[in-house]
Amino acid sequence: MTDAVTVKALAGLPPAQVIEELSWQAIVDRMVARFQTLWEAERVANPALAPYDTLLLASDPARKLIELAAYVEMALRGRLNDAARSNLLFYTDGTDADHLVIFYDVLRMLGESIEALKSRTILAIAGRSPGGPRERYEAIARAADVRVRHAHAYRVGRDPTIHVAVWSADNAGVADEALLATVRAALEDDGHGLINDTFAVRAAVFAAVDITLDVWLLPAAMESILVAIPGAVTAAWSAETGMGFDLAAEWVQARAMIAGVQRARMTSPELAAEPYQAISIRSVAINYRGRAY
């Protein structure tokens, strides 16, 4: 899952220094202090001027002008922040993202989400060499069709054949023959790789599993929450996992612990996956075991 891990890593970077933390009140306070300094300097030059001691009153006219000026400065600096964000892959959005990624020869596909576009752009950058690394082939597979959620390129031993496993964004993750043919054609295109590359394209999903959970509820919980557990587990599996992710009881049980659940225990078998394999959850069956503290 090179692409997914890399995208998640962007969120772990320190905040970009070019993006300022803005505070309207801090701007007002700075302007008030500056006004008071300038006024005192004027009083030194002209002792007849009275002290200006009403600047902290909300009704003071000078205060109103300062607040207006602070609003204008806040808006301008906020616009600068937005411009900076539009040029950073992690923050960019909308058509700004389309203009940013075109620099890396990436075009948004019809129906492609912003998250998919960003991860595909990172793959394109990492795989700039036409003869590899594996990110090159994964980027080609991702760009072949918007239905390709993830792709994993690998070799078996010293065999030069390039294997590409494809995980679909629909059909419970199972890539159908039409999608595999589209990816294979993209990989074998003369403009994409070396003329001696040999590809074997396959579906990444090798198992669709049925999960069984024993569930205990808290004394005050309504039994109707039981029907929400399968959706919570499958939604988390889709959002948090990917190719090479094992089906572990601890992971499933943790996602089943929605509000009102006292304990959950997976009774169906666990399943391990190779880095180029993916597991699909076909169903989640709930066995209600009563209530507990």
Rank of each mutant, 00 (worst) to 15 (best):
Y276E: 12
R79N: 12
I140K: 13
L110P: 05
Y137W: 15
V18Q: 08
A75K: 14
A259S: 13
A70V: 11
A50N: 01
F103L: 14
T92N: 06
V261E: 00
V164H: 01
F35A: 05
A232T: 04
P61A: 06
E270S: 12
Q262I: 02
E112V: 10
R85I: 00
L80N: 02
M222G: 09
D145F: 06
Y104K: 07
M266C: 06
F245G: 00
R43M: 13
V148F: 01
T182W: 02
L68I: 11
F245P: 03
A69D: 13
A172M: 10
R265N: 12
E21C: 05
V284Y: 00
A204G: 15
L247S: 01
F206M: 06
D105Y: 15
A285S: 12
F206R: 10
A200I: 07
D145Y: 03
E240K: 11
D82L: 14
L76Y: 10
E115N: 12
R34F: 14
P160K: 05
T95H: 05
A185N: 09
V146M: 11
T198I: 12
Y91P: 02
S86K: 12
M243E: 00
D176N: 14
F206K: 12
R79E: 13
L110F: 03
R134T: 07
A4C: 03
M222R: 11
T92C: 14
A69F: 15
A186K: 11
P219M: 00
L10V: 08
D210W: 06
M1D: 01
P230F: 04
G94I: 09
T54L: 09
H150E: 15
L100V: 04
F35C: 06
G173C: 07
D159S: 15
I286H: 08
L68G: 09
P14V: 06
E223W: 08
A139F: 00
E112P: 09
A33N: 09
V156R: 15
V201S: 03
L38T: 09
D105K: 14
T6M: 09
P15V: 02
D82A: 15
A207N: 07
D96N: 13
L179R: 03
A228M: 11
R142M: 13
S86A: 15
E177A: 14
T198F: 07
A228K: 12
L123N: 05
L117A: 01
G131W: 03
R255P: 10
D214G: 03
P269I: 03
K64W: 02
V156Q: 14
V28T: 02
M109K: 11
D60P: 06
P269T: 08
R282N: 11
P61I: 07
A221R: 00
R147A: 13
A186R: 11
A26T: 08
G111S: 12
P219G: 02
A50V: 01
E42V: 05
I122P: 00
T241E: 03
L56E: 09
I27S: 02
T267D: 05
W167I: 04
D170M: 08
D214I: 03
V166P: 00
I195N: 04
V101R: 01
Q277K: 14
T241L: 08
L117Q: 01
Y137A: 02
A239D: 15
A259R: 09
A292G: 15
A207Y: 08
A264F: 10
A58T: 12
R289I: 05
G231D: 10
N87I: 09
T182A: 13
V164S: 04
A45H: 10
A151L: 01
G244D: 00
